[in-house]
């Protein structure tokens, strides 16, 4: 008797798009470490005329920090439409956070993770389900 467990030869069966939300202080620290940014500091931070409370991240050449409230996933910042800090630096932090967050939860589940940069600037993570951490 022949039993075929899987006939799907590694083709994609399911695609999900996700808007990244910053909710994990450990991954914030890991992203800062990855991007060689100063260590994030929790507290109340000044943003020109306003202030915000959360994890303050200092981005390169940004006048004010980006403040991440992990309870609401809100990110507070004031870069004056790019004059006080480039949007690309914030995007780079969001990418670093998503990569580190995915690696942390995958390894916590006992899966192995391989990271690979792509030519378009994206980063691909391959999680082997059931693999060693």
């Amino acid at each position: 008797m022949f039993v075929v467990s899987y006939l799907n030869g590694g083709t994609v069966s399911h695609i999900v798009s996700i808007q990244t939300e910053i909710r994990d202080p450990v991954a914030i620290h890991a992203a800062c470490d990855r991007l060689r940014l100063p260590e994030p500091v929790f507290g109340k931070a000044k943003l020109f005329t306003t202030s915000a409370t959360g994890w303050a991240v200092r981005l390169p050449e940004w006048r004010y920090p980006v403040v991440c409230d992990v309870n609401t996933a809100n990110i507070a910042y004031d870069n004056f439409g790019g004059r006080w800090g480039k949007q690309q630096e914030l995007d780079r932090f969001l990418q670093g956070y998503a990569v580190e967050r995915a690696k942390i939860v995958a390894r916590n589940q006992g899966h192995s993770v391989i990271e690979q940069p792509l030519p378009n600037g994206a980063i691909k993570l391959t999680i082997s389900v059931g693999g060693a951490a």
Binding site: F2, V3, V4, S5, Y6, L7, N8, G9, G10, T11, V12, S13, H14, I15, V16, S17, I18, Q19, T20, Q88, D91, R92, F93, L94, Q95, Y97, A98, V99, A102, A106, L118, N120, G121, A122, I123, K124, L125, T126, I127, S128, V129, G130
Partner: peptide, 28 residues
Amino acid sequence: MTTTISKTIDIIVAPDGQARVETRGFVG
């Protein structure tokens, strides 16, 4: 005979931080 194909989850994180998750090798 049992044929088993590896199961993987690919995550592509774009330069702006948005992510796409793709599953491979799973049944249903």
